[in-house]
Amino acid sequence: MVSSTKRFKQHHQAVCTELDGDVALFQSNTCDYLVLNETGSAIWNALKTQPTLPELCKYLEEEYEVTPDECKSAIETWLEAALDKKVIAVVDD
C-alpha cells in the first residue's frame, strides 16, 4: 500500500516522450517501456510538483468525474505499478 504522507516524483532514469497525445516512458536501467493513457499521463505530468497521494487525488477528482474512493484506489494501483517499473520514485526526506 502506498503511504499518503510520501511524496512522489518522476524517476531520473525514466525517459519520457509524447506519442499522439499520450506519454510514453522508457526506464533505461530495466528496459521497461510503458505507454500511458490520458489519466496515466495526467498523473505523470502532476509528478513534476512531487505531490502526495492525497494531492494527486484532489487534482484528479477536479479533472475527472470519479468518486474519492475510486480515485484513491486507482492512483494507488498506478503508483505501485510505476514504482515496481522504476519510472517513479519516492522523494527522499
Score class of each variant (00 low, 15 high):
G21C: 10
A14M: 08
W44S: 01
Y33G: 00
L53D: 10
L83T: 01
E65R: 14
L60W: 04
Y59F: 13
L34P: 03
A42D: 14
A46V: 02
K58T: 09
D32H: 11
Y33M: 07
G21N: 10
E61G: 08
L36H: 09
E38Q: 02
T49N: 12
Q50D: 06
E18L: 13
C57N: 10
Q27F: 11
S3W: 07
V2L: 12
E80M: 03
E80F: 04
T67L: 09
A82N: 12
D84L: 06
L79D: 03
E65W: 15
C31Y: 09
N45V: 01
L19V: 15
E61C: 11
S3I: 03
L83I: 03
P54R: 03
E62T: 13
N29Q: 09
V90W: 04
A81V: 10
L19P: 05
L79P: 02
N45K: 09
E38R: 03
L83Y: 02
T30G: 11
A81E: 11
H12W: 15
T77V: 01
A82V: 03
D32P: 00
D69R: 06
S28C: 13
E18D: 10
D69W: 09
A24W: 12
D32M: 07
T17P: 05
L53A: 06
D32C: 05
S3R: 10
W78K: 00
Y64F: 06
G40H: 00
K86V: 00
I43S: 00
E70V: 03
C31E: 11
A81P: 05
D93T: 07
E76M: 13
K58N: 14
V91K: 01
L25W: 01
A24I: 10
W78Q: 00
C31G: 02
Y59C: 03
A24P: 08
A82F: 06
E62V: 03
T49M: 07
L83W: 02
T5C: 11
